[in-house]
Nucleic acid binder design. Sequence first.
DNA 1: TTTCTGCATTCTGCATGTAACACTTTTCCT
DNA 2: AGGAAAAGTGTTACATGCAGAATGCAGAAA
Lengths: 215, 215
Amino acid sequence: MLQPIASVRVVDVVRDRLRSAILSGDIAPGSRLSVPELARQLGVSRSPVREAVLLLVGEGLAVEQSRRGVEVARLELTDVLELYDLRTNLEGLAARLAAERMTSSDLAALRGVLDAQGAAAVGDARSFRELDHRFHEIVSQTCGNTRLARHAALLAREMRLAGPLMVNEPWHLKQSHQEHRAIEHALRQRDGPAAENAMRVHLSRVCQSVRHHNS
Amino acid sequence: MLQPIASVRVVDVVRDRLRSAILSGDIAPGSRLSVPELARQLGVSRSPVREAVLLLVGEGLAVEQSRRGVEVARLELTDVLELYDLRTNLEGLAARLAAERMTSSDLAALRGVLDAQGAAAVGDARSFRELDHRFHEIVSQTCGNTRLARHAALLAREMRLAGPLMVNEPWHLKQSHQEHRAIEHALRQRDGPAAENAMRVHLSRVCQSVRHHNS
DNA sequence: TTTCTGCATTCTGCATGTAACACTTTTCCT
DNA sequence: AGGAAAAGTGTTACATGCAGAATGCAGAAA
């Protein structure tokens, strides 16, 4: 059974590259996304770059200003709180649904991420965040509701623009890790309501931490 | 104090026109969206049309097929159920938040919509649906969470593609109308939890009706 | 020193050119 | 007639052209 060959479109490559650059911080929030400049740097014409930039606007990672081009979105504290409110609900629902649908390989992947996170928790905030995203991504993507998965992914990605607003103290990361363990435990028990509750507790608590850390 | 001049971009006009045509059914689900053809019909060049079509894909109203262009999204029953699950949660949250933030003019607008809906309820399913959208839109847009408002709007719009899957029996519309009244009552009392509960009851019940109507 | 003016540069937004590909119809050969 | 090849039609995806608008800056004016 041969897989159909997926034609690689330039616009997709450009979009992925720009998204990675934005999420990794290589292109800082507030930076202008000049289409001709990016086209020169990437060695392609302006058309696919323009379309990729438009798609990023649709994803919420960039904002357009009337006639003044597009710049990488800048998140204020209120934006982050908004995002946590939404994620609390969406990912809570996702966790409840995922509890009944996760395969044993999904659960194994989840545990692998948590083990790696436990090892990274001391000091390496960057690795910790990466594994945090993987954890939440696995839960969202296995919930069985494709639209929920898509919207949760959009919100989780958008939140990665928050950078300096996030709390990186070791004790806080440790706390998150323990809450992740609780979520995983509920998922492993196939206890949907408990998983939802644990996810909501986790994200609400992080939201509160962020709020108090920036005031 | 002069208002800044909002430049009207062709791409925005095209996007709005295409979206209206899709949501009104003028362009049926499954129809191919040929960029050159649409450009001819609209009397503009292909560039803004191509971008508008891409934006509609981003909104979930159209889907791209590899190398075979874009067509208007076709919703199966499972898609509609997915959407209701999501809307139940998102709009439930929106209702709770809106209860504390709606102004008296918002409440007046809501009541106006409900009164019009009460008059239209008998027989005119098309008007009823239009007012239903207005009702949910007002609640979502007044919740104070811009991202919640945006995502709720996207989901509500996407659901309008469901067409023949929806339940249009008069008694069902009447039931929806009464549930809308209950939601509005809770909002007017500024009772967030009650509003959330009423919204969830409403959307869950509609979801069940749709499920049983198509099986 | 500060503010304004005019020019040069760059960008945005739309139009158009074009190669590669997909689908349809016609034609040609058996 | 039946089936394959080939031409024709239409599209996608990318490249490029270009007018108008925004931005930055040097130099003049207050």
